[in-house]
Amino acid sequence: MGQAVGVEVGLADVPALERGVALLGSGGGGDTVTAAALLRGRLAAGDRNALTPLGELARDAQVVPIGVIGATAVFAEKLPSGAEFRDAIAAVERWTGRRTDALVSIEVGGLNGIVPLVVGGQLGLPVADADLSGRGVPRLDQLSVAAAGKGLTPLVLAEPGGQVLVLAEATAAEVERTARAFLAGAGGWAVLVLAPIPAAELADCAIPDTVSSALSLGRQALSADAEALAATTGGRVLGSGRVVEVSRRPGPGKHGRTGFARGSATVRDHRSRTLIRLEMENEYLFAMRDGEPVASTPDVLALLDHRTGVPIPCDVVRRGVEVAVLQLPAAPFWTDPRHLPVLAPRAFGIDCDPVLEVRR
């Protein structure tokens, strides 16, 4: 196997990476602050983090998708020891008989845009400049490998208490249900590791260049306001104003199971005096202006604090805060008609076609 050439991510890059992955979380994705602190700690301790484009990995390199799932808000209260990641990777290696050559994030949006770099530095493994979502997604059956028809099993779940579960065979929907059941007894979160994927195959079912793109996006966001950020990224600002209403409600369940919590946040635009309503689940999913659809998933929707520019997650948005409503273009993978239904509004129970007005 050839040696891949890596680009190091250093301490000076962490603030930009954190801001970029927070934006791509679309209001979800978990606690980037704690993930960034973990990365800073590992870098300060001397870890080296190599970020490698997919095309620079040997075609037969075995790339392991990795991430954290569950109630990631608990992540800050119940920090990983590091053993969870080692145990999960070791288990998938034993089950498949293949050795891990590199890691790739399951989700660039939120804390999972950072966690693989922490693990890669700890284990001395390069991290592919790619991920399996291109943004924040709430369900495992919405990862790009599932959308591309590759499947998710075999996979491993490892929780902080030491329990490790190998799921040998299941549909993507069954994987999602099994993982949620496992999390109920896992203390809130768990490590997810998928079986190694040869780099040559990963190119067809992953979204390339997303970690470096998040880093670039974060650099721009740290040095520009929302209007300038939209202009340089092919996005747009839907409006700026005060959050005048936030409502939350139980989500629609399936087969007797409770769904994710749903809700909405309404912003009164200062200039037009129109009302911009954002429908949200784990992420911001759909935007209307005075009742007319103006933006939707799979584009990334974000609320930025007017004073600091920091993205405001769905679970903490509140009345009275001044915000800008930002729309960023989806990765081309998700605008492909073969994959679009997986993240379109109807995939979340919103009876509307996708509204993808942003163009590169």
Results as ranks from 00 to 15, higher is better:
109 G>N: 03
255 H>T: 08
4 A>P: 15
314 C>P: 09
84 E>I: 09
90 A>C: 12
3 Q>Y: 15
55 G>W: 11
181 A>P: 11
122 Q>V: 14
43 L>W: 00
169 E>W: 11
3 Q>L: 15
172 A>T: 12
285 L>G: 01
107 E>A: 04
3 Q>I: 13
344 A>T: 10
339 H>V: 00
203 A>E: 00
64 V>P: 07
84 E>G: 06
346 R>T: 15
177 R>G: 03
265 A>C: 14
71 A>Q: 14
72 T>D: 08
46 G>F: 12
316 V>Q: 13
164 V>C: 05
19 R>A: 05
208 P>F: 07
1 M>D: 07
135 R>L: 02
75 F>H: 00
341 P>V: 04
297 T>M: 11
116 P>C: 06
168 A>M: 00
80 P>C: 09
224 A>R: 14
329 P>T: 04
87 D>H: 13
184 A>G: 05
38 L>D: 02
8 E>M: 10
358 V>G: 06
27 G>M: 09
214 A>C: 07
37 A>N: 01
215 L>F: 08
28 G>N: 03
76 A>K: 10
92 V>Q: 04
1 M>S: 13
205 C>M: 14
108 V>S: 06
169 E>L: 15
353 D>K: 08
207 I>E: 02
31 D>M: 05
241 G>V: 07
351 D>L: 13
164 V>W: 10
59 R>F: 03
172 A>M: 10
203 A>I: 10
103 L>M: 10
97 G>T: 01
153 T>E: 12
109 G>K: 06
86 R>F: 13
66 I>F: 10
319 R>M: 03
295 A>M: 05
238 L>Q: 07
110 G>A: 04
68 V>Y: 02
205 C>V: 14
161 G>F: 12
195 A>M: 03
304 L>A: 12
225 D>Q: 09
158 A>N: 09
159 E>F: 08
122 Q>A: 15
181 A>M: 14
138 P>Y: 05
232 T>Q: 09
167 L>I: 09
67 G>P: 00
193 V>W: 04
161 G>A: 02
357 E>C: 07
286 F>L: 10
